[in-house]
Nucleic acid binder design. Sequence first.
DNA 1: CTTGGAATGTCAACAAGGCTGACTTATCCT
DNA 2: AGGATAAGTCAGCCTTGTTGACATTCCAAG
Lengths: 168, 168
Amino acid sequence: MVDSQGGQGGQALLFLTDDQLRKGIEAMFFAYRGFTADPDRILEGMAYGRAHHRAIHFINRSPGTTVNNLLSILGVTKQSLNRVLRSLIEDGLVESRVGKKDKRERHLFLTEKGALLERELSDAQRERMRAAYRAAGPDAVAGFRQVLEAMMDEDMRRHYATLKDRQV
Amino acid sequence: MVDSQGGQGGQALLFLTDDQLRKGIEAMFFAYRGFTADPDRILEGMAYGRAHHRAIHFINRSPGTTVNNLLSILGVTKQSLNRVLRSLIEDGLVESRVGKKDKRERHLFLTEKGALLERELSDAQRERMRAAYRAAGPDAVAGFRQVLEAMMDEDMRRHYATLKDRQV
DNA sequence: CTTGGAATGTCAACAAGGCTGACTTATCCT
DNA sequence: AGGATAAGTCAGCCTTGTTGACATTCCAAG
């Protein structure tokens, strides 16, 4: 397991050495810090955190989504999500409407105030992404997305795919 | 800010649209979950968590590093790191040696037992990385790394660069 | 040489945000 | 009528982040 080049690969498989893989792992670690840094800065001092950001993001992406669906996207327990959702609803950033067809369900929407914060957060996060994309160029970006998609668990890939083509 | 193509870019800058950027953001979110899933599974029930994994990883990468240096790599407060370090030392996974030159400093090393756990964790994490790399191919991997590097904060990029060429 | 400031590391206490388990309420569907 | 499902709640725990106070050690200016 120390070296995955085996005997048959040679030069063509050099990108699969333990050393290359380790560099990728460290790149993920350091990059993710940058990825979350800007929204974290905005949220700090607002009594909100990363958990609130995630909820706001995905409610914005799928207006009218149910609590259960959000749960499965975020991969947390309902008690965890509920704590976050409750504060967002109390503060008037999120609205919860009883389902028309199935009255057990609650459908979640951002209020105007919620959409405003969403905008602020995603603007900041997109700005960093834009700079990185621009610096790396379109081919690199395609590769970036390919590797990330291959790294996801099956369930997450499904959610990702369901979301990603919402707007053509 | 809704659309960054401006007037002058046209087709060539289509990869910088808000929609493309948002897909990248969601890909980072879902992929990072997969990235940490395997080590998390191993650690759960061991009284250790992701913080312990990070400490073990970077001590392994820079044997003899000081607490301060580790602090700056991990980007947490020294009190946070200290708690983690204390339990690792108590459990005999990490050894802390008083500095020869400067006795205020502690130099950190993995014990055999610590190296064993490091191996188990990094094997699991590398396995997922290897599968993703193999599925995406060498060109995609190059792009992946380029975008991640461009996404890092300056300080993190420095740490990343310092670490990454340790072994040629 | 001494003394005060800077640097390194430790301890205590608190908050955010995960988790489990047990339970209620309302609704749906067979 | 009765079991299954969706959502919400309460209590309590753990990990991992935070700040503040403190001990030790080093070094440089007087």
